[in-house]
Every structure is written in structure tokens, then in C-alpha cells.
Amino acid sequence: MPGQDPRTQWIPTLFLIVSALWTVEPQGLSGRGLACTVLIVVNSLVLATRHVPEDKIPPRLTAAWLTFGVLTAAALIGVSTGGASYLFAYFIVGHIGFRLEPRTALTLAALCGVLCTVALYFHLGTGHDLLPWTLGFTTGGPVLIGMLNRSRHRAVLAALSAAESAERAARAEAQAAVLTERGRIARDVHDVLAHSLAGINMQLELADALIETGDLEKVREANQKAHSMVKESLKQAQWTVHALREDSLPLVESLTAMLDSSGHRDALTVTGTVRDVPSRVTQNLLRIAQEALTNAARHAPGGPVQVELTYADTSMTLAVRNGPATRRVNAGVGSGMGLIGMRERVALLNGTITAGPVVTGPHEGGWQVEAVIPG
């Protein structure tokens, strides 16, 4: 059986061989003794061959040597005059049930029973007078035990194969999840840093070129833009860190931390009963909120910001509103996502998104982004 020590499987075989050599008579180098000795050796070899793995012997050869084993086992009963010679028949038939297909195994078991019965009935071995001839029929019985062990053996192999397949699938899934997470982190970091660093580098190169012209006012302006971009990049980096932690932080806490890091404390309003949502919903809503806050900081600096998260029975709504700018608007660089990226994220969740100017209320003249997610 799988997982069983091969040395343990050899114990019954060696015990039977030693018992036969010790008890079976006659043994010698001539006449019946020589025939009995040869048959003991042959039966021992047939019995020992059962420990050879199935895939090492072709099925036809297996059937041939087990058929030969049935014949030699019956012959040993007929030639010997005493001892445990009949045990070879029991062991060989049991292995027939384990090694061969049911129809072939039952046929050989019946053949063994008939041959052993004939040997005992006609008292071919004079020492077997004390054994009833009907004992020969019982030598075919162990085939059922062998067939049962065969079924159990195959069930164990199937279970091991299924477990190995499940383990391989789990490893592949885990690897795919790691690669997906790496891709997501790389994409988020790229959105935050790539364009910002490119813009900062451009402003610094411009300042360097303006130094040679002696126009200090334009140098200061380029330097201020670079500083502004650095501050915005730092804010976006903080938001990204929070977004990357959405698997360990609930949505409300993550939004609160994001708003606090951007300087909009107490800007979040939650309506309805808060409930747990899938991590991918949390991830995409946080990225939508991050992009909306980035756009507000870029296009309406100094304007008030209000974020509303509404839990309805069958949906969730995230709305980000900002008022008009109260400070000078400086041209900046995007995060690489924009409204198209927000629409793609919402589409992944089978939701809808609207964006446009605010025409009424305290944020009139500002901008509003509203995403509705089912579930």
C-alpha cells in the first residue's frame, strides 16, 4: 500500500518461505524430494515477485507468471507429504486478486481451487490424509481479499493524486495571486510617481536653463512649481500606501486615513449600515477616491472637499465633491488614471459613474464624481 514500509510487506513472504523450508516434506536431491525442493523454490520465487512494482512488469507477463504460480502451488500440494505447502496457494491467489483484473483473477482463483481439490481428493500427497479434500476449494477464497485490497489501493492512489493536483493548483493560484498583486502595486506606484517625477524633472531642467538667462522671476516660478509637484507627489504616495493596505483595513477607516493624510479631516460622511465588502470593491473605490482627491487638489486648490459613502440595501455610492479653487491653479501632471481609468474600475464592479460640475449647493462651481456599485 502507498506509504507502507516495503520492509514490512516482506515479513509475511519471508515467514511463509521459512515455514515451507522447515515443515514441507520430503526434501532432497533425488526423486520426490528433489521435485518437492524445486517446487518450494519456484513457489518462493513466484511469491517474492509480488513485491515488484506493477509498472515494472507488463500485464500479460503478470498474468502468465501468476498462472504458472497457481500450477506450481497445486503441484507442491500433490508432491509433498506434509507441512504447510498449501499456504503458497492461499498467498498466490490473494495476490492474484490484488494484481489482476476481476474477471481474470476470479478465473485463476477457481482454477487454483479445482487443482488443489483434485490433489487432496486423490491423496496425491500421502501425508495430506488428515486434510479434508474440500479444503482445496478454500484456496480460491483469498482472491476476494486481494480484490478488496486492490480497490482500496487504487482509492488511496486516487486520493494522493487528487491531493497532489490540489496542491499544485494551490501553488499555481498563490503564484498567480502574487504576480497579480505585484502588477497592481507596480501600476499604482507608477501612477503616483512616474508622471510626477517627469514633471518635476522638467521644471528643474527649465529652472536650470533659465539661470543662464538671468530671469530670476521665471526661475523662482519654475522652482515653486517643482516644490508644488513634490508636495502633491508626497500626498499621492501617502494615499497609495493606504490603498495598498485595503485588505487589512475596512473601507471606512481607509477612506478616513486617506482624507486625513490629504488635509481634509472630518470630510467623510457615512450613511446607512456599514458592512464588509469584498477586497476588490474596497481597492477600486479607494483608487477612485484617490484620483478624485488628486484632481481636486490639482484643479481646485484650497477648495472645500466633501466625501459621502452611502450604504443602501442593494448598492453602495461613493460621491466626492469639491468647491471652486481659492488659490491660484498651477498646471500639474496627472496620475495616469483620469476619468477613463475610473470608468474602467467601476465597470469591473458592474457599477456606474458620473462626473460633472456642481451647479447647486455649498460646492456650486466645483466638481463632483459619483460611483454607484451594486451589492
Rank of each mutant, 00 (worst) to 15 (best):
T273K: 15
K231G: 05
L318M: 04
N149W: 08
A237T: 14
E25F: 01
F68G: 13
Q4W: 14
L249R: 14
S151M: 13
G146V: 10
L255R: 15
A89I: 07
T271A: 07
V41K: 00
V277Y: 07
G136E: 03
M342R: 07
G31V: 02
S19W: 00
A186F: 04
G341E: 03
N350R: 15
T273M: 08
L111E: 05
G303V: 00
A177C: 11
L34I: 03
K56W: 13
S262E: 04
D188P: 05
P132K: 15
L318I: 04
D313C: 01
R287T: 09
I185K: 14
V24T: 08
P59S: 15
P53Q: 14
G28N: 12
G361Y: 00
P278S: 15
P304S: 12
R32P: 08
H264Q: 08
W239V: 05
V178C: 08
L206R: 15
G332Q: 14
R321H: 01
L130Y: 13
L216P: 02
R265K: 15
D55Q: 11
L204A: 10
I40W: 02
T37W: 01
P374V: 06
L348V: 10
G341C: 02
D215F: 07
I211T: 12
V359P: 01
V281L: 14
P53V: 11
S262V: 01
L309W: 03
M316D: 03
S254H: 06
I200K: 13
L124I: 07
I211M: 12
S19Y: 00
L204F: 07
I145G: 15
F122V: 04
V372K: 11
M258R: 05
S196L: 09
E370G: 01
A267S: 05
A84W: 02
T352H: 14
T310D: 07
D129S: 12
Y311C: 05
D276G: 10
S161F: 05
L144K: 06
Q9Y: 13
R32H: 06
G127F: 11
V114D: 06
G3N: 08
V189M: 11
G82F: 01
A75T: 07
M337G: 06
A319M: 10
M229E: 09
A158I: 10
L66P: 05
R32Q: 10
A325V: 02
L14M: 09
Q290G: 11
G336V: 02
Q238A: 12
R150F: 03
A371K: 14
A170Q: 14
V219A: 06
A312P: 02
A237E: 08
D215T: 10
L111P: 03
E173I: 10
L108I: 12
T13D: 05
L197W: 07
L339F: 09
A172Q: 15
A170H: 14
W133I: 05
V320R: 00
Y90Q: 03
L115Y: 10
P362R: 00
Q283C: 07
G341H: 04
R328C: 01
V178K: 15
M337V: 13
W239L: 08
T310A: 12
F137M: 11
S19H: 00
T72K: 00
H299A: 02
A300I: 00
Q203E: 08
N330S: 09
T72V: 04
L39T: 08
T310M: 02
F122W: 11
E101R: 12
N149C: 07
P53T: 13
M258F: 05
L339V: 09
L193Q: 15
T269G: 03
S30N: 12
H242G: 05
K56D: 09
R327T: 08
Y121P: 00
G302I: 03
A20W: 00
